[in-house]
Design a binder for these strands. Sequence first.
DNA 1: TCACTTAGTGTACGGCTGTTCACTAGATAT
DNA 2: ATATCTAGTGAACAGCCGTACACTAAGTGA
Lengths: 244, 244
Amino acid sequence: MSVNRRTHSSRPSPTGKSGRGAGSGSRTPPRRSQSERRQQTRQALLDAALDQLADGIRFDQLSLRRVARAAGVVPAAFYRHFDSMDELALVLVEESVRTLRSMLREAREGGTPPERMIASSVEILVSHVREHRRHFAFIADARSSSNTVLRHTIRNEIRLFASELATDLARFPVLREWSTADLQLLAGLFVDTMIVAIDALLESPASALAVEGPPGQASSEIAAQTEKRMRLIALGVPNWRSRP
Amino acid sequence: MSVNRRTHSSRPSPTGKSGRGAGSGSRTPPRRSQSERRQQTRQALLDAALDQLADGIRFDQLSLRRVARAAGVVPAAFYRHFDSMDELALVLVEESVRTLRSMLREAREGGTPPERMIASSVEILVSHVREHRRHFAFIADARSSSNTVLRHTIRNEIRLFASELATDLARFPVLREWSTADLQLLAGLFVDTMIVAIDALLESPASALAVEGPPGQASSEIAAQTEKRMRLIALGVPNWRSRP
DNA sequence: TCACTTAGTGTACGGCTGTTCACTAGATAT
DNA sequence: ATATCTAGTGAACAGCCGTACACTAAGTGA
């Protein structure tokens, strides 16, 4: 995990011999420009945080010191890149939201026939969570973080995501006449169903040997369950009237 | 919040006069049996924890010392009643689950006409959350706690809740022919919709002056939104076939 | 009345936390 | 070649944490 080679030590080298290429097998450290070093450490900090998140550590328990340690850097060095853990979190929001939007884009562009729409969306969801587990773990976690700003930020992004989905839904013939509010309702229901699926997907493989309760479902079961839920919701659409 | 009157002090009374009824206006402390005292402090600890939870403090941030302080008791005294915060949490689970089941009972027993079923359930949900805010706050929080045992325990209880709802649903004529699995699916969808509603209800009033994002919706809006979601789901029911 | 039990006290300890500061070595600019 | 800049170091700080321990006052039972 450590990014930086030890550049100087408090204890002088035990052998008097120092200088480049002295030790057998020790190679000259690769020359890196200052900006390379900087950018690399910064990313190491972000990666360290994401890795811990993917390992089931919650953001709230993620201390500045733990992140620095996992990045192979001393705590004080953290401040060269971020003012606080909260600021690091906001960078992770951007990264993760990009992943989220890429999922929407992927679902949009393939010329999927309407009757395959739900199945295809669920497949994309599952594969995206598998391939970008760390980002989804962060999103899921941040959603219920104790950091108010972070929590509100991520929830707002999810609301935006639902809004985009709503305008996509508007293109379906059955939904042509629907009011904006009703489209938001439907999209919100779909999105919340996805979130439940994401939570389940994240729970299952990391805690495969969980001590308590039913063993985490396999991702195929979760996918099947999610697809059924969405189909059931979609079935109500043709009969929907806003006022009861 | 403090339950126990100061019973002795490290510093001797500044006046030499000690003994009962000495000071003007000081009344004799009410005699309490030992078991009364014990039970009272224990409840004060539980209440202190619940109060903090209702104030938006997450269980993870809730330290033994904070709880003890809020209960007006020294940290070491905590151990006379619970081995650890985790053990206290499990007691709160029992308390809270009782509240949850009382909600189901209330929804069951009133002779509600079928077409009012959803509206009535949502009303009961909203009023229950208002009246037992602390328990619901704990449930919502524990669901995503970092304590694995606690999290699994509460999720299992929610699964049980969904199962009971499923058997209730089975009594509806439209659902007579449904398989158990499909009933579980439907119940799960309803329950998750409720959880979303609970989260929203808990968010709104405590953080009425939230710094960021859209102001929390009023509970009536949340109720309306939730009712619509459930109605939409219910509309799909008559057309449902398990295999697509 | 007197010994026993027990709920709660006060103090102390080590461990982890965020933050600060003077310092250094390697990259950069003159 | 030399001076400047800067990413990272290591040591120190105060604060909160969980836990341990000896102690005390009040309630309890013989």
